[in-house]
């Protein structure tokens, strides 16, 4: 598939996911099983994206405190838990990552 078509279909798929429920479920009730499944989608998908970013920094599993992405992610999770503020979460996470990488490197 040419790259342009791949990107176009990525867009079509994304827009359909965003528009479909607005059009469909404004006319009728959502079935209960679907509502229950959808409730866990953000938690599951976001976690599935985050965890490899933290644990496989160079493509290899790094379960150690010398892995600064793990340390930074843990610090960020703590800030997110206490503040529920995305900007603080990013700021503290990046600060730990930079200072930590500087100390280790």
């Amino acid at each position: 598939m040419p790259l342009f078509l791949t990107i176009l279909f990525m867009g079509v798929v994304t827009y359909s996911i965003r528009l479909g429920p607005i059009l469909f479920f404004s006319q009728r009730e959502m079935p209960d099983w679907l509502r229950r499944m959808l409730r866990y989608v953000p938690t599951a998908v976001l976690t599935a994206i985050i965890v490899p970013e933290m644990l496989f920094p160079g493509g290899e599993l790094a379960l150690s405190w010398m892995n600064m992405r793990l340390a930074a992610g843990a610090a960020a999770a703590f800030v997110a838990w206490r503040t529920h503020n995305v900007l603080w979460t990013i700021a503290v996470g990046m600060a730990v990552l930079w200072v930590g990488s500087w100390l280790v490197g």
């Binding site: 953000p42 938690t43 976001l46 976690t47 994206i49 985050i50 970013e53 933290m54 992405r69 930074a72 992610g73 960020a76 999770a77 997110a80 503020n85 995305v86 900007l87 979460t89 990013i90 996470g93 990046m94």
Partner: peptide, 8 residues
């Protein structure tokens, strides 16, 4: 990853 940690 940090943005998503803030959301999740």
């Amino acid at each position: 990853a940090l943005t998503f940690i803030g959301l999740v």
